[in-house]
């Protein structure tokens, strides 16, 4: 086995292990940290595929913003010494069914899409993504920003409700 394959197996292993730990561990703080490990593994996979830009953005957005927001929510919600709540088998089954359906759907979409190999030269990743966002995918791009704006305004309205003017 070549060094490259070994590294790939290692990175993929870390990603999968992080994903499994994120749903099986009982301490919520550990769940969030395992999720971070999994996301970091995905970023490493992007580097492995030659897209440094996506890897960097993955770390900045998913780990730096989303995962940290999750950690914040956990810290604000319950003290460390509190006992873990018992797991409910019925709920696990429901969650399993939903995620299985999602998995099957995503797998189908992924398998039915043709994946042309991208050219790998110089700034391709960054320049191509930028150009694509502002030309071909302009409408979805703007739609997403509108959705985010609505979310921000909604969060502001919700958080300002209890406070006296």
């Amino acid at each position: 086995m070549s060094l490259q394959e070994l590294v790939f197996l290692g990175v993929a292993g870390i990603t999968l292990a992080g994903a499994c730990l994120a749903v099986t561990l009982k301490n919520v703080f550990y769940n969030a940290l395992s999720l971070i490990l999994c996301l970091f593994g995905v970023a490493c996979l992007f580097i492995f595929l030659g897209s440094e830009f996506l890897a960097v953005i993955e770390v900045i957005l998913y780990i730096g913003a989303i995962a940290v927001a999750i950690l914040f929510a956990i810290m604000l919600s319950r003290p460390m010494f509190q006992k873990n709540v018992k797991r409910n088998p019925a709920k696990i089954l429901q969650a399993f069914a939903v995620s299985a359906a999602l998995f099957v759907g995503l797998a189908r979409v992924i398998r039915s899409t043709p994946w042309p190999a991208a050219e790998t030269d110089g700034d391709y990743g960054l320049a191509a993504i930028g150009k694509n966002l502002l030309t071909v995918s302009l409408v979805p791009f703007e739609a997403v920003s509108l959705v985010l704006l609505v979310a921000i305004i909604g969060a502001l309205v919700l958080s300002a409700k209890g406070e006296p003017r």
Partner: peptide, 24 residues
């Protein structure tokens, strides 16, 4: 690297998580 200093910026995010873990 093609991404240059963005690489450093993304890594500092992991430092924050280290700080978070230290405090917790």
């Amino acid at each position: 690297l093609n991404v240059g200093f963005l690489f450093v910026t993304s890594l500092t995010n992991i430092t924050f998580i280290g700080i978070f873990i230290a405090g917790w």
